[in-house]
């Protein structure tokens, strides 16, 4: 796929992220519609911090982020801890995504219907139809990850930030989840930044893989060898 001629969705200019001390410095990167980027790196190195900074939840220490997406519903985020409301039903959780991703003003009369349609489709795609009314705290770890995925699919964001949402899933679950997400990204020409601890899987899923090491983000050109 050629992503080179479309306008970037995200541009990072000399971005330095961290809390008090910098964790990852001087990142320059452009992400275009349809691209899948993965980031690997050891624990505690600052991968989640980078994702939260792009999501606008942490202030950059230096540099800037240009987002070329809708402020409401354009950005999807699956946190490492998933961000589910434990006491609310699967449908309620997925409904939050659908709410962010559908515009009431566009057509108030069909809004309710459009939203429900998205919720039902996403729940069915993730194989959770029989759990729709169950509070999410009663689901297994794998099922909870599918709820978080369904929430994002119902939202249909232009840019998806996913933090290790494939780890601890068994092969069958990974297949279902990855296929659904990649299908969506291709159909809608949306982009994804995926944090993934398994390098092989990261390379397999994404177009470009980056590694965080010693406070720098570098692109891996081929599996295993690094490009300076």
């Amino acid at each position: 796929m050629n992503h080179a001629n479309s306008k970037p969705l995200v541009t990072l200019n000399d971005l330095t992220v961290g809390y008090d001390e910098p964790l990852v410095s001087k990142i320059n990167m452009e992400i275009r519609p349809g691209e899948i980027i993965s980031i690997v790196g050891s624990s505690g190195i600052g991968k989640t911090t980078l994702l939260r900074t792009i999501a606008g939840l942490v202030k950059p220490l230096e540099g800037s982020i240009n987002l070329n997406i809708q402020p409401r519903g354009g950005l999807g985020y699956i946190p490492q801890k998933l961000g589910l409301i434990r006491h609310a039903s699967v449908a309620h959780n997925v409904g939050l995504g659908a709410r962010a991703g559908t515009s009431f003003k566009e057509d108030p009369l069909t809004w309710w219907k459009r939203r429900n349609q998205r919720v039902n489709d996403a729940i069915e795609l993730m194989g959770l139809s029989d759990k729709a009314d169950e509070p999410t705290r009663r689901l297994s770890g794998g099922q909870q990850k599918r709820v978080a995925t369904a929430r994002t699919l119902a939202q249909q964001p232009q840019l998806l930030l996913a933090d290790e949402f494939l780890s601890e899933l068994d092969e069958d679950n990974i297949d279902v989840v990855v296929r659904a997400v990649i299908n969506y990204l291709e159909e809608s020409n949306a982009a994804m930044i995926l944090i993934e601890h398994n390098i092989e899987r990261a390379v397999e899923i994404s177009h470009r893989t980056f590694s965080v090491r010693e406070g720098k983000l570098t692109e891996l050109s081929d599996f295993g060898s690094e490009q300076e």
């Binding site: 606008g56 409401r72 961000g83 939050l96 978080a148």
Partner: peptide, 19 residues
């Protein structure tokens, strides 16, 4: 994390409070 996910999505303050 539920707060962060919904803020990133762009939900409004009142939606975040009540939902």
């Amino acid at each position: 994390d539920p707060l962060e996910a919904s803020r990133a999505m762009g939900l409004s303050r009142s939606e975040i409070t009540f939902l």
